[in-house]
Structure formats: structure tokens, C-alpha cells
Simulated scan of single mutants.
Amino acid sequence: MSDENGTPDTSKGGPRPEPIRFFGTTWVDHDGGYAARRAAVAAGSLATAAVSCLVLGFAYQGLQIANVGEPVTLLVVVMFAVCSVLAFGHTWGAFTKRPDPERQATLRGLLAIGFIGSLLAYFARSLSEAPGEKLHRQEYETARAAHEKRTTRRTGDPSRKRRS
């Protein structure tokens, strides 16, 4: 059950779901405009990727105008393509398991260069769910189960229990 802000009711205590960027906690019950948000995220990430490709096209034309030579131009195109593929894979993997913070820090430059791959991963994931929803749902359900296990009360008097 959620309130009007999309925040799940935790008046009984227990773990709170972690908000996801652009979705808050609407991913828990798929309410509060969840479907519209998913459509907006998909459209926005695809539009941003398209505009980014146009900007990279201008950069390519700049290299042609500067007449830097074919090897440099080819190197730049291959660099953006490889970094985009690697960024797509890294971003896609981050939707299913938490990335290592140290590895994330070392890949920061690669992810910045391959930003188009990250945008496309965000677009592709938002077609089926909120990006990161599966991971957050898993963690939330695990935390809820652990909380339930901790808070269940025993029935009966333990001192009257028969010993075998």
C-alpha cells in the first residue's frame, strides 16, 4: 500500500524500499504513474542517445575538416564504438547486481566516453521494467523476509517444551 507520494506504507515498521532515479518508490506497487514514468524514461534516454549521436557526427566532421588523417579518424571512431559497447555491458550488468565501487571508479573514464552505450542500456531496460527494479526488488524482498523472521513471535512457554 502506498500513500499519495508513492511512498510505501511502513507504519508497521520494517525495511523501506530504496528509491530508483526517476521512479522514487513507485516501482514497489507499480503505482503513482509508474507506467508513464517508464515511457518517459524510455523516450528520454533514446532521444538523448540520438542527440548524442548527432553531436558525435559533428565531431567526426570536425576531424574531416581538420584533415587529421584516416588513422586518427578511424581510431576515434573505434574508440567510441568499443567504449559504448563496454559501457552498455557494464550498465546492463549493474541493473542485476551491485557494481564494485573500486571497479566503478576505475571505469569512470570509459563509461564517460561510452555514454551512448549507457543511454541505450537504460532505454532497453526501461522497456521491460524500471532500470534497476529487479535488483532493488530482490534486496527489498530479502530485507522484508529477514525482518519478518526477526519479528515473528514464538507461541507458548519455552520452559514447558518437552525435551527429548
Rank of each mutant, 00 (worst) to 15 (best):
M1E: 02
S2P: 14
S2W: 03
E4I: 10
E4G: 10
E4D: 11
N5T: 08
G6M: 01
T7P: 06
T7Q: 12
T7H: 10
T7L: 07
P8K: 05
D9Y: 00
T10M: 09
T10W: 00
S11D: 07
S11W: 01
S11E: 06
S11V: 02
S11C: 05
K12H: 05
K12C: 12
G13T: 04
G13R: 00
G14S: 01
G14R: 02
G14Y: 03
G14H: 02
P15Q: 01
R16Q: 15
R16G: 06
R16A: 15
P17G: 09
P17C: 13
P17Y: 11
E18P: 05
P19K: 07
P19Y: 09
P19I: 01
P19D: 07
P19G: 09
I20H: 11
I20C: 00
I20L: 15
I20K: 08
R21N: 14
R21P: 13
F22S: 06
F22W: 13
F22M: 06
F23S: 13
F23D: 08
F23K: 07
G24T: 05
T25F: 01
T25M: 07
T26F: 06
T26S: 10
T26H: 03
V28S: 08
V28L: 10
V28I: 12
H30W: 12
H30D: 09
H30T: 13
D31C: 09
D31K: 12
D31P: 11
G32P: 08
G33A: 02
G33S: 09
G33V: 01
Y34K: 02
Y34H: 15
A36E: 14
R37S: 09
R38I: 12
R38K: 15
A39I: 15
A40K: 03
V41T: 15
V41H: 11
V41K: 05
A42C: 12
A42M: 02
A43F: 14
G44V: 03
S45I: 05
L46Y: 03
L46T: 10
A47M: 11
T48A: 13
T48P: 00
A49K: 00
A50K: 03
V51F: 11
S52G: 13
S52R: 06
S52H: 10
C53P: 06
L54M: 08
L54T: 10
V55N: 03
V55L: 10
V55P: 01
V55Q: 07
